[in-house]
Design a protein around this nucleic acid. Structure first.
Lengths: 131, 131
DNA sequence: CGGTAATATGCCCGCCGCGGTATATGAATT
DNA sequence: AATTCATATACCGCGGCGGGCATATTACCG
């Protein structure tokens, strides 16, 4: 992916919020719906956009899909994610998202945690790229 | 300007090349035309886009218009420019642009230099924001 | 004043991305 | 098998943006 394409992934406020949240660890779609307070279809479409552009990875766990930042990242992606983190440090919007994320008791937190612990070759049940 | 808007300025390859070149110092439109090898109208429109979004500043010097990065920049803009510079370090396209910039003998190099030296309250002749 | 060089803008068109609505897929549960 | 939950996708309409062409603006020069 070239740089302009990468920036295109970043030029939507919802996608920025998603990527920011993902820096705290893997999350399932229902997390995003709750934290972002956006309709399911909107969240799903933005996640699909990021996924097809290699900005996030998706893994099915039963009926849930866990999204995470790519395990292996290009140098540019790494730099951009760091830059994004610095940029939003003083932004109330993004910080509020983080607070809401930590407050919520998600339906599938155990799944996210299980997947976060999963650093090896994915020992979990079904773990295909996408549905 | 919010962050997503900033990223929107960055999500076009031509604008990325322009911003990258500007990190080497102020340039006039004819520089961009030569280095980028793009039609005048394309260069001008991308510059207008960046200008209206506060990513660059324009100053008339006689019949030329010199573009530069803003003298005063938001923290986010500063971070993004640094990140961009790091990201393109190994990109042949952007490095080739820089080489071509240094090779060329521009029509109005003295103007750019004069403006670069200008750190004070703009002592030069006519120096209005835009035409 | 007329001409020319440098730059900007208006218009048209095509494409992409976003929101919304409806619907499909896939897994779990009974 | 039917239902329900979680998630994705197809379709539609709209606005923004980029390219191309023509034209306007501004400054300079003879």
């Amino acid at each position: 992916m070239n740089l302009a394409e990468l920036y295109r992934c970043l030029c939507d406020p919802t996608r920025l919020r998603i990527l920011h949240l993902l820096q705290a660890g893997p999350l399932c779609v229902c997390h995003f719906q709750t934290v972002l307070e956006l309709p399911q279809v909107s969240v799903s479409k933005h996640l699909a956009y990021l996924r097809t552009h290699g900005m996030v990875e998706a893994h099915r766990h039963g009926q849930w899909v866990i999204y995470s930042l790519p395990r292996v990242r290009s140098r540019a992606l790494e730099l951009q994610l760091n830059c994004l983190r610095e940029c939003v440090q003083s932004d109330p919007r993004f910080q509020a998202d983080l607070r809401r994320l930590h407050q919520m008791q998600p339906c599938c937190s155990w799944v996210a945690e299980a997947l976060a612990a999963e650093v090896g070759p994915a020992p979990a049940p079904v773990d295909r790229p996408m549905a």
